[in-house]
Design a protein around this nucleic acid. Structure first.
Lengths: 146, 146
DNA sequence: TATTGTTATACTCTATAACTATA
DNA sequence: TATAGTTATAGAGTATAACAATA
């Protein structure tokens, strides 16, 4: 791996193919407990980043507030998050993960992410894992630039 | 970059986040000419791999034959691909890219892939491009293993 | 029996538009 | 005016089920 001439166009095209495939497979895979892909993304942002408002989460995930609202409504209905009115701003609600939500995330993580992790440890060398680990934050940065 | 202890679970979680973000951004981006994401994926497989049947393309893209059929019908309607009955097997049709299809792919590639390529060359170092280039085939392999 | 392709239907995820309430 | 959130509606991209034709 790693000669120096890299064609951005080619990298773009092959990234596009590979992430399309991978995301489709993850969507098809058995769910994490009963969490859909966007639900588990929102939940894990709340878990990692602490309580936040719906608008903040929508900005982080780069989707519309309405879409995030729909996702969050489902999570709240099942008791995985709770809403507290923000005392300093009457328009806002602060969302946080409930114990049941944390349990859904961590204990029942027997679905998609686990599947991915298993495939990674079974079929990839340590050197390849390093490449993927280093690539992940770059992909996230790329998503912010496109 | 690159100490040796890599936690597969952590890599899985961060890949999942980053590819989700990136694919959403690409879907939102202005289209390549007038090609949707699955259309351009199918077209570029036909272009790179030569004529193929619908079932073959569906397997390669890991989607159902019905979904691929819908995508291909749209491409054919606009004259970007053509269908020839397979002389050796009456059930099959062999698909190939027309000149108009090739033009739609290459000349009008001013949309998503171009946007991605521009972001890559403007905001990423050569070393980072190497990481991404090396990661792409690993992601594709991962999609086949999950 | 298995495979190729089609038609019909429905689900998930996301978007935009229009609205209310608060800042 | 601008922002947070809601409700309603629509579109893209998938899936599954049921079928006809061919192998």
């Amino acid at each position: 791996m790693g000669e120096e001439r890299v064609d951005a166009q080619e990298v773009a095209a092959s990234l596009r193919t590979s992430i399309g495939l991978l995301l489709r497979r993850m969507r098809q895979a058995p769910a994490d407990g009963d969490l859909t892909l966007p639900e588990s993304a929102a939940l894990s942002r709340l878990d990692r980043g602490g309580p936040a408002t719906a608008a903040e989460l929508a900005r982080q995930e780069q989707i519309s507030p309405q879409s995030m609202g729909a996702t969050l409504a489902g999570l709240q209905e099942r008791g995985y998050i709770e809403r507290q009115p923000d005392p300093t701003d009457g328009r806002r609600y602060v969302l946080s993960v409930t114990p049941a939500g944390a349990e859904a995330m961590h204990h029942r993580r027997s679905g998609r992410t686990r599947l991915l992790a298993d495939a990674l440890s079974e079929h990839f060398s340590p050197a390849e894992l390093v490449v993927l680990r280093d690539a992940a934050p770059l992909l996230e940065r790329l998503a912010g630039r496109v």
